[in-house]
């Protein structure tokens, strides 16, 4: 267990990190209307606490895999903001050179391996990565340092896979959980249960029973929690990361939350009527930022001036990130023909 994962939650820091995702997503939504970010974009507004509460326990050696709704995971893991934005604009300086757009992100230096949009596509990849980390560790223990890349014996890197309640229905999810338990992989399954797959509610897709209990039946250590309370997520993830690091096998967190914007795109879509009446409004009252802010103020961990300063600082960072991104260059079709084979 690293020292970091034993620390009590630094609520102010967590708040700042969540706010950073929120403001970045809002800025993307605002500028999307200019029709220069021409790619399908799934925003995570309303769900920020999960990415932040989990990634707070990870080092850059730990790895993250994610899905179509990946901006928050990428940023929480330390992914470069200007390169994310450049990717949305389709510039050569984007994190995928403009090949992927919003749904395909990567930042290897930060340990964010990849997000892709075929639902479930990255789930087994995360397990394979964790399997390799486990094998490399045993290679190190046997003295074969080269394959392990000089890692200290005893330390296990963990791998995290973020996915949604819809993804839980894919067969590959269950095939992967089975193997992960069989091999006791240092892997965290983080299920962001926002009750919808696109516009289809959970009740049209799954019988009424708890997702995490199915994971438990597979043999994972599985719990559920409030995905809109960053302190709760932080605590659950703390234990889960520690377990995975210490060889106790794969961990599963089902975290309840709600997406505010439309499934894909910059707008809200409550007018379409697929959510229950009042549902969105109710979840907005349970906003992860609002809840954390209330605690920060009530417990005098922060004050209005400091919170206002955070806003200014972030507004500057995001403004600069857009400015950097917009200096990008157009990729050519010749360049896009490269890297078909390694």
């Amino acid at each position: 267990m690293t020292a970091m994962s034993q620390a009590p939650a630094d609520l102010k820091h967590l708040y700042y990190q969540m706010l950073r995702i929120r403001r970045a997503e809002e800025a993307i939504a605002r500028r999307y209307a200019e029709q220069q970010m021409r790619c399908p974009t799934h925003l995570c507004i309303g769900e920020e606490a999960i990415a932040i509460g989990v990634c707070a326990h990870l080092t850059t050696q730990d790895k993250v895999f994610s899905n179509h709704r990946g901006h928050g995971h990428y940023l929480a893991k330390g992914g470069d903001l200007p390169r994310l934005l450049a990717e949305l604009y389709g510039f050569a300086e984007g994190c995928c050179g403009g090949r992927g757009g919003s749904m395909h992100l990567t930042d290897l230096a930060a340990g964010f391996i990849a997000s892709t949009p075929i639902v479930g596509g990255t789930v087994p990849l995360a397990a394979g990565y964790a399997w390799a980390e486990q094998m490399k560790k045993s290679v190190t223990a046997q003295g074969g340092a080269s394959a392990a890349g000089g890692r200290t014996p005893g330390a296990t890197n963990v791998v995290v896979i973020f996915f949604g309640d819809g993804c839980f229905e894919e067969g590959v999810m269950h095939e992967t959980m089975n193997f992960a338990v069989l091999k006791k992989l240092p892997l965290l399954f983080i299920c962001e249960n926002n009750q919808y797959s696109v516009m289809t509610p959970l009740a049209e897709r799954q019988p009424k029973r708890d997702i995490y209990k199915i994971a438990a039946a597979h043999g994972l250590t599985a719990v559920s929690g409030d995905g809109n309370r960053v302190d709760d997520v932080y605590e659950l993830a703390q234990a889960a990361v520690a377990n995975a690091r210490n060889g106790l096998g794969p961990q599963f967190l089902e975290l309840h939350t709600h997406r505010w914007p439309e499934h894909c795109g910059p707008n809200e879509d409550d007018d379409l009527g697929y959510r229950n009446p009042g549902e969105l409004a109710e979840w907005k009252l349970r906003c992860p930022l609002l809840q954390t802010r209330q605690v920060l103020l009530a417990e005098r961990l922060s004050n209005d001036a400091e919170l206002a300063h955070m806003e200014t600082k972030l507004a500057e960072e995001i403004e600069q990130a857009f400015a950097r991104a917009l200096q990008g260059s157009r990729p050519t079709i010749e360049r896009m023909g490269q890297h078909l084979y390694a």
Binding site: G90, F91, G94, G98, R99, G100, I333, M336, L340
Partner: peptide
């Protein structure tokens, strides 16, 4: 079309 996956960037759509 060219023999590689479709890249996302709209800048190359006309050439792809």
């Amino acid at each position: 079309y060219p023999n590689h996956p479709v890249p996302t960037s709209h800048f190359v759509a006309n050439d792809y």
